[in-house]
Deep mutational scan, measured.
Amino acid sequence: IRCIGVSNRDFVEGMSGGTWVDVVLEHGGCVTVMAQDKPTVDIELVTTTVSNMAEVRSYCYEASISDMASDSRCPTQGEAYLDKQSDTQYVCKRTLVDRGWGNGCGLFGKGSLVTCAKFTCSKKMTGKSIQPENLEYRIMLSVHGSQHSGMIVNDTGYETDENRAKVEVTPNSPRAEATLGGFGSLGLDCEPRTGLDFSDLYYLTMNNKHWLVHKEWFHDIPLPWHAGADTGTPHWNNKEALVEFKDAHAKRQTVVVLGSQEGAVHTALAGALEAEMDGAKGKLFSGHLKCRLKMDKLRLKGVSYSLCTAAFTFTKVPAETLHGTVTVEVQYAGTDGPCKIPVQMAVDMQTLTPVGRLITANPVITESTENSKMMLELDPPFGDSYIVIGVGDKKITHHWHRSGSTIGKAFEATVRGAKRMAVLGDTAWDFGSVGGVFNSLGKGIHQIFGAAFKSLFGGMSWFSQILIGTLLVWLGLNTKNGSISLTCLALGGVMIFLSTAVSA
């Protein structure tokens, strides 16, 4: 259960009878995928790494000078000259100064003066180019299975845990398959586009800190620079940016070097996208990844198990997540596992009318040892309800109150669905055939309105939902006002479609 501690969480529900669903994975976010007769899966884009970055340009932001020398000439005696002028490691300046009897010249006039100092770069920052084909995306998957609280967001041991898996995709191999043991396998067909235009970005490294910066900004930095990788004795261009020549006297000129420019660069980098280094690879934390999940090989585990009949206890007080759902960790005293956990939410304890829904599909106890633990997640209705676990006299209950409203949740879900469709863009549509167009249209309606429909009408039977949709269509056909007619027709059509397409 990876997503319960992530604030940016998206719930995606598969269409009834569908074998695939489109998701948008982004750094700092987590996606929970639910479908009829399929286990619930949490998917998170953990890291995006980039390798084989080529150094484009380096800037010196802290330097020192040494070996200063000057040469001067009297008027009419030609130009002052130093051998160091031809050495690229030196920074030199030529000027004219007033000369006369007082400073060793027989004539009054302008004399030539040249001053040089050896330039040494102490600290530099480097910009590297990123090729999209060198990106690698690491995705962690977790099935809502027989897990306890100690396994949440624990990325170790996934090789031997059938509840978890790690997959890596690249532009050259965008397809992967996550093996989930008894739950089958989940196929991923990803489109490795981060949403960032790397043709316009460089990877900047300064003092063990890293950013993504725009090329134009990078090339306009007014500091000494050299092109390409460091060859040991780089040729620094624009050395004068960190060196200041003071007022010249008759035979000498003082040279000083400016202080470190790291603070000024940090100020200019305010708002830039931060990154990290992992050995020789860069780690990015921006952008998104679009994936199509193929769920035809994914299956529920323990459908044929019998119900657990022994007593359950709450190991922890049920807690609310950031998303309005409830996490419950229970301990089973029996030894008759594997068995299914009898769990439901009810409005009252007399009729036990089921409300809400299970995020953890078909929760089971897989071990036959005593005191096995299991964590599950529920989506309670707004208002008061009861969490009921167990059967008969051994069942345990917990009162729950959820604040908020169904309308607010439906609106929030619609906005999130619209954002998801905007990110998917043209990849969500198939114009290759008439059937493809209608299929894409259905998927689009489901992406945007599916979660809201589930919130508003999830407790009704599909037949009642179709009746309401048919009534809206009838009202649309018999209303003389054009805008009201079109609105009723659209709402009725969407409702009829979703009542037959969205899983219960």
Rank of each mutant, 00 (worst) to 15 (best):
S461Q: 10
G442I: 11
K110Q: 07
H399R: 02
T325V: 06
G111K: 06
M140S: 10
G302V: 06
K294T: 02
S483P: 06
W429G: 06
F245L: 09
C3K: 06
H210Y: 15
S146G: 15
C30T: 04
T233P: 13
M277I: 15
D189A: 08
D336V: 13
R138S: 05
P381D: 06
W474M: 14
T479E: 01
A241Q: 03
L358C: 12
F183K: 10
L307Q: 11
T406M: 11
M295A: 07
S260Q: 11
A504Y: 13
D430N: 15
F119V: 08
N103P: 02
G324L: 03
H323S: 03
E177H: 09
I341V: 14
N8D: 14
K394D: 03
L456N: 07
E13A: 02
K38A: 11
S199E: 15
N237P: 00
F218K: 09
A165K: 12
T179D: 14
N237H: 15
V143G: 03
N362Q: 10
E367Q: 06
A311M: 12
R357M: 03
C116L: 02
T179I: 13
A504Q: 11
N481D: 14
N208T: 15
I496D: 05
Q465E: 11
C190K: 10
V169H: 07
A270E: 11
A346C: 04
T95N: 14
K340T: 03
R94Q: 05
Y305M: 07
K294V: 03
I139Y: 06
S403W: 13
T233G: 14
T32R: 01
T267F: 09
F11K: 05
G390A: 05
L471W: 11
G182C: 11
E55K: 10
D336Y: 08
L135H: 02
V167Q: 05
F497Q: 12
M34N: 08
M495C: 08
C30R: 07
V326E: 04
Y61P: 00
L223Y: 09
D98F: 09
W101Q: 04
K239L: 02
K128Y: 05
E177L: 03
V502G: 10
G279S: 15
M295I: 08
T325M: 10
E329C: 10
L141C: 11
P363W: 05
Y202H: 13
P174I: 08
M140W: 05
L180M: 13
Y386E: 02
V255L: 14
M421C: 06
S58T: 14
H401I: 11
A311N: 02
I221D: 03
G78N: 04
L284K: 03
V91Y: 03
L289N: 04
S122H: 13
S146F: 15
Y59H: 09
V114M: 09
E320Q: 08
G157D: 02
T479G: 08
M375H: 04
H27P: 02
A311Y: 15
L489Q: 10
T49E: 01
L289E: 06
V364N: 02
I496F: 15
Y386V: 14
H446C: 04
N154C: 03
M421Y: 12
K316P: 01
L196K: 01
A275Y: 01
H144L: 08
V437N: 03
Y202M: 13
F449D: 13
V257R: 00
G18F: 01
S58F: 05
L45T: 06
T156H: 03
K128R: 15
Q85I: 01
G259P: 13
G14D: 11
E26I: 04
G435Y: 14
G102A: 11
H288K: 05
K373L: 14
R292H: 15
W429F: 04
V243M: 11
M460F: 12
G356Y: 06
F382V: 07
K123R: 14
T325I: 08
I341D: 10
A490V: 14
G102Q: 04
Q261G: 08
E159Q: 15
T47H: 13
P171F: 07
G195T: 09
S368M: 07
G111Y: 05
V473L: 15
K301D: 05
T49C: 05
I130T: 08
K394P: 05
A418Y: 08
G383W: 01
Q261E: 09
